[in-house]
Computed example of a mutant assay.
Amino acid sequence: MAMNGREGAGAEAWRQVQPGLLRMRRLLLVAWLTPLTLLAAVLPPVLGGGAVWVLLPVPPALALVWAWWAAGVNWRSWRYLERDDDLLISRGVMWRQLTAVPYGRMQLVEVTSGPVERRFGLARLQLHTAAAATDAAIPGLAPPEAERLRDRLTELGEARSAGL
Rank of each mutant, 00 (worst) to 15 (best):
W66L: 14
T129Y: 10
L149W: 14
R148H: 15
V52P: 00
G5P: 03
R25W: 15
M94K: 04
G157F: 09
D86W: 01
L28D: 01
T37V: 03
R150E: 13
D86S: 05
M24C: 04
A123D: 09
L56G: 04
V58M: 04
G163I: 04
L164R: 14
L43G: 06
E117I: 03
V42R: 03
V42C: 04
T99Y: 02
R26T: 03
L36M: 14
L149G: 11
P60M: 12
D85K: 12
W14D: 04
A11E: 08
P115K: 12
M1F: 02
L28E: 10
T129I: 07
A136V: 02
V111Q: 05
V54H: 02
A31Q: 08
V65G: 12
A100P: 00
H128M: 10
R25T: 08
M106P: 05
L38C: 11
G49C: 02
L43T: 11
V58S: 00
R15P: 01
L38P: 12
A131M: 04
W66C: 13
R105G: 03
G5L: 05
S90G: 13
W68M: 03
P115E: 06
L149S: 14
V30T: 10
L43C: 04
R118V: 08
V52H: 01
V111K: 03
R79G: 14
T129K: 04
I89G: 10
L28C: 03
E117L: 03
G20M: 04
V17R: 11
A13C: 02
P35N: 13
R79P: 02
S90L: 05
V116D: 02
A133G: 06
W32K: 09
R152N: 15
L21E: 06
Q16R: 15
A71Q: 14
A70C: 03
G163F: 07
P45S: 07
T134H: 13
A162L: 14
V54A: 07
A130Y: 09
V58R: 00
P102E: 06
R15T: 13
P139G: 07
G72S: 12
G114W: 02
G5F: 03
V58G: 00
T99R: 11
W69K: 13
S77P: 08
R26L: 00
I138K: 11
V42N: 00
A162E: 15
G5M: 05
A159T: 15
P35E: 06
A67V: 02
